[in-house]
Write a protein that binds this DNA or RNA. Sequence first.
DNA 1: TCATTCTGGCTGGAAAGGAT
DNA 2: ATCCTTTCCAGCCAGAATGA
Length: 313
Amino acid sequence: MQRIERYIEAATRDNTRRGYRAAIRHYEETWGGLLPATAESVARYLADHAEQLALNTLRLHLAALARWHRDQGFPDPTKAPVVRQVMRGITELHPAREHQARALRLEDLVRVDAMLETRIRTGGLAEALRARRDRALLLVGFWRAFRGDELLRLAVEDVRQEHDGGLLIRLARTKTSHGESRDYPLPRLSRLCPVTAYADWVGCAGIERGAVFRGIDRWGRVREQGLHPNSLIPLLRRLLEEAGVADAASYSAHSLRRGFASWASASQWQLRELMDYVGWRDARSALRYIERAAPRLGGRIERALAAPEDASG
DNA sequence: TCATTCTGGCTGGAAAGGAT
DNA sequence: ATCCTTTCCAGCCAGAATGA
């Protein structure tokens, strides 16, 4: 019995459970709804929050309510026609304006890297060590376009030296792959090299197993555990701020992933290449970034007009 | 000072479902 | 059969409080 529960537990991430719990609490306590709910009350609940909450949040709350009813063995009121119609109406009247993380530009990466380089050469022991960590974090994060959680979950056991001088990183778990792990190559570069930065950090910190990116206290002692996911954003912003990047507070952990994707699309990477490298299975995910680089499209068309060419595609 | 914890709200991405 | 939309759930972000 206990074994079953263990697997059921593992089927849903903590974060999802947390989100659902919050949604149910919101329905019951904040709004005063009764459970099990009727389709009409769910529709009213949605209408009452249509102006305050984002469309995606309403969808999340709906998913939580559906899940609750399914789990308790009640009919699911969220699938009723009224509810669907109300959702459609909200979509119509309050269209979502989604906010995307700001892409980190290569020139800003260069600035931060230069600053860290200086610290490594001239800083004190603790300062230089921290600079080594930050540099590895930044360069691996950017060139591999990892999500924040993937970056912080990285362990030295997952990293293998390749014959060509690059690294091969095995991620056992990403946001979208559950069972199987996947290998991501990390190339050696002539400048802003993530492989060198990684080796330098791991070597100097004497990390032989476990988390790659760890906390460092003010005396320069490296912790056993990895950095907490919530520490990444403040860390990154501080680096950008110190390097003099304008509007440092507007960047986030996802800016590394976005930054790489924007750079790649601006550097004429093909859609397929980008999808394969970053690990997107759906072209639309990659297209989002390419559309961001749309101003360049004009330039490409101009060039193509100026230099008539064959119609190979 | 450098980092973690907590929790509400939001975005992202694959797969299922539906329309044509 | 193909394309588009919806669903579901995973992770991202903010910001304040709290430690070592």
